Deep mutational scan, measured.
Amino acid sequence: MEVRTIKVFTTVDNINLHTQVVDMSMTYGQQFGPTYLDGADVTKIKPHNSHEGKTFYVLPNDDTLRVEAFEYYHTTDPSFLGRYMSALNHTKKWKYPQVNGLTSIKWADNNCYLATALLTLQQIELKFNPPALQDAYYRARAGEAANFCALILAYCNKTVGELGDVRETMSYLFQHANLDSCKRVLNVVCKTCGQQQTTLKGVEAVMYMGTLSYEQFKKGVQIPCTCGKQATKYLVQQESPFVMMSAPPAQYELKHGTFTCASEYTGNYQCGHYKHITSKETLYCIDGALLTKSSEYKGPITDVFYKENSYTTTIK
């Protein structure tokens, strides 16, 4: 009895394709271990004539594949690729409408935090270190965002349907971005203890939790000093293409032309909904596939993004 075979390709990165001759009487799992086709788990399936010449994702289970996976995804987590594939199996079914010149995501599976993050990423200057993220990001900007969303979920250790947080998501993504040249110098002034300067680099240099107003941050924000008295913390120097200011959701007025974009969060910790506000020729609110415009805006804002380049204080 002759062994019926077909020729397929296996890959971990969709760049390096490895030619395989597979036995049609055995499952993919018996031949390769966990195997995925377009995100779908085909591990328990036997090869079919229609699979001839198709590319299958496999887990990096030998040295060659491990090197290829690390170079593309910059992670050695053995569960990463499987999590990416199972997320992709959902995100490829989502709709990605162009809204006001940006790629958004039609609401499904509690994905409003991903839509808000995706919209924000198209408006701030950011370059990702893992080629996987950078490639998928370019495709997302062009309207094909399924891979990018699935990668975000995998890097953030999230599953489809789980509630997510924009600030946490951005923080994970910033860790995989090139923020080497970003720098922030802060000064804390206390009447009792004097003053202390701190220099922050990388992710810490672009994120701040405690106030939404970048102007206020430049002037000074009140913080408790270690001595128990009130101290003032203010920005001395900022070198970065953008800054992200966050605070627990509270009524906040966004003035046209003073910011790049913002995240609105309605609801409580267990259950809520994100919308995205962007400042173009007027203010726009993007909620999944829905767009509304207004000249002014007041609502429960939790993150505001500002364009920056270089700032030095005039406070002496």
Rank of each mutant, 00 (worst) to 15 (best):
A117I: 10
E52A: 13
C227T: 01
K7L: 09
G288Q: 00
T302Q: 00
V22M: 10
S294R: 13
F32C: 10
S263H: 12
C225Y: 00
T226E: 14
L163A: 12
F9W: 13
A146C: 10
Y265I: 01
A87D: 03
I105Y: 04
E204V: 07
T211S: 13
K219S: 11
G29S: 09
A231N: 00
N61A: 14
Q122W: 04
V243T: 03
G228V: 01
N309H: 05
N268R: 07
L153T: 04
Q230R: 14
S246L: 00
T292Y: 14
S294M: 13
Y265L: 02
L163G: 08
Y72A: 12
A115Y: 00
S213C: 08
E2N: 15
E253S: 09
C285A: 08
F32T: 15
S86H: 05
T258I: 04
N268I: 06
E52L: 13
I6W: 08
Q222R: 09
G33I: 03
G299V: 03
N49S: 14
G39L: 08
C225M: 01
Q31F: 15
T313I: 11
K93M: 07
R139C: 11
F56P: 04
E215V: 06
P60S: 11
H273D: 00
L102D: 03
F128N: 02
A142L: 11
D38R: 11
K307G: 09
L65G: 08
V166C: 06
R167K: 06
G33H: 04
A136E: 14
K95D: 09
F56V: 11
L283D: 01
E68L: 07
T10L: 11
E215T: 08
G143L: 04
A231G: 06
Q31E: 09
D303Y: 00
T27G: 09
S181A: 10
I152S: 05
E253F: 09
S279D: 14
P131S: 04
T302G: 00
N268F: 08
D41W: 06
D62E: 13
M170E: 02
W107Y: 07
V236E: 06
E2L: 11
K229W: 11
L114S: 04
M245C: 11
Q197R: 14
S171M: 15
L212Y: 03
I6M: 12
W94V: 03
D23A: 11
P47E: 05
E296A: 14
C182H: 03
L200H: 14
V22F: 07
S79Q: 14
A40L: 13
T312N: 09
L118E: 02
D41H: 09
T5H: 15
L200W: 06
Q134D: 09
T302V: 06
V188R: 14
F148N: 01
L163W: 06
T75Y: 06
S295F: 11
L163E: 07
V189T: 13
F80G: 02
K233T: 09
H273C: 00
A247K: 04
P60C: 08
S104P: 02
T314K: 11
F217G: 01
S104H: 03
L186N: 05
I277L: 06
L173T: 02
S263G: 01
E253G: 05
L163P: 07
M245A: 03
T169G: 00
H74R: 12
P248Q: 09
H256I: 13
N178K: 15
Y137A: 08
Q237V: 13
K280E: 08
K158M: 06
Y96W: 04
E296V: 11
K46F: 13
I152R: 01
Q98F: 15
I152V: 11
Y138E: 12
T292M: 10
K233Q: 08
H276Y: 06
E2C: 15
C112N: 01
F174I: 04
V58L: 11
G267N: 05
H273N: 03
T91R: 04
C271K: 10
T27Q: 15
R83S: 08
T11A: 06
D38A: 12
C227K: 00
R4V: 13
R83P: 03
L65T: 14
V206D: 00
N14C: 14
V236F: 07
C149A: 10
T103K: 04
A40P: 09
V42M: 11
E144K: 11
N268A: 10
Y96N: 01
T282P: 00
T159C: 11
T35Q: 05
N187L: 13
I223V: 13
E71S: 07
D303V: 01
A150L: 03
W107M: 02
I315M: 15
D165L: 01
D13A: 05
K158N: 04
V221L: 12
F80A: 03
K298T: 09
I45Y: 13
C112G: 01
N111S: 04
G288P: 00
A250F: 07
H48I: 15
I315H: 15
L65C: 09
F305K: 00
G257E: 07
V304P: 00
Q216C: 12
T292K: 07
A154H: 04
I15D: 06
Y208N: 07
L59T: 15
E162H: 05
A136T: 09
N187I: 13
Y311S: 08
V8G: 06
Y234D: 01
K307P: 15
F70T: 09
